[in-house]
Write a protein that binds this DNA or RNA. Sequence first.
RNA 1: GCUGGAGUUGAGCAAUUGGUUAGCUCCGCAGACUGUAAAUCUGCCGCCUUUGGCUAUGUAGGUUCGAGUCCUAUCUCCAGCA
Length: 334
Amino acid sequence: MTINQISDLGGQSILANTYHLILQPGSDLVAASGGLAKFMGFDGPTFTDSGGFQIMSLPKVKITETGVEFRSHIDGSKLSMTPKSSMVAQHQIGADIHMAFDYPVGYGDTDTARANAEKTLKITHDWALQSLYHHQKLNQNHEKNHEPLQALYGVVQGGEFQDLREASAKFFAELDFDGYGIGGMYDARKCENLLVFQNQILPESKPRHWLGMGAEPIDLFVGIENGIDTFDCVAPTRQARNGALYTYDGRINITNARFTRDFSPIDSECDCYTCANYTRSYIQHLFKAKEILACTLASIHNERFVVRTVEQIRDSITSNTFHEFKEAFLKRYY
RNA sequence: GCUGGAGUUGAGCAAUUGGUUAGCUCCGCAGACUGUAAAUCUGCCGCCUUUGGCUAUGUAGGUUCGAGUCCUAUCUCCAGCA
């Protein structure tokens, strides 16, 4: 997608990933180009994730108390990341908002899962302190050089355990972070209680970012209702590339045979560029022909669907009709 | 007309020297995807009453304990020759 396409659908911000940018093109190159936003031609606020999540998703990662060792999925080279190196890289990349280097914990509520959650939470907190320390030092350098300052969010963890979430939220609430990421969550219905709980503890005056959430419309409703300010999620674009498209009546797989001769838009109520100009039939054809435009048009649609839903939620809050809107939307979608 | 080669699922191909192969890749059908190793992955894809069973290799016979494979006839296609 081009920056214009993102702006046109109402996208306000972009999140990039430190792990991926270190591998290519390198955080030093992004710095030399003038920083993340300038490098990609975007005139708006940017985030970087710390690379902590890759601890969870990469195989053969060695985790020590000082950091992680892993291999590049591109050339197999041996690399490492620590709270300090993540902060240095994020300052080079130069997004407006950085994430502390954290250790996300796996799912589960068994005794083993609990022991693991306790252990990793301790590491997350330790790394958060180091992240904050190095971040503040790097910001001091920016100040000396009359460069813009950057913000750092701490990332709350604790798995599925309410007492650990409480301890983590309390730990972070007392530290001088600019905002908070909430990590390690995966299902809005299951996690709603934890979310309510944590956000009662985290300072109301600081923004909260729900890391990785937003694949399901219910994520947006539950998050916003309980004090989440920003989201990031790969699902709308990944699912778009794989032919799964959002409609107000639920998700569809556009490659299904029933759409072959369907000459209506993906969703007749959608106001996106794709729905204004293309039919389900044509988009299916692009997917089956493996034409890359399919990915673009589908991504425009899915991202617009998400952004528009948030716009509608915002309006419903203003007009004091949030709960009615939520109920009607979710009932129809699911 | 003669000579040679080839016919296996919608397509393209495997299947050891006659010995467990209804096998592979596409296509097709459906599902999944949550801080991006993902334009990816998974299942199904001859028939049935499906933890199994049955029937297949152009067609009709034959040899053999056993045939996609060997033999005979025949049909179709391809190449060369006339």
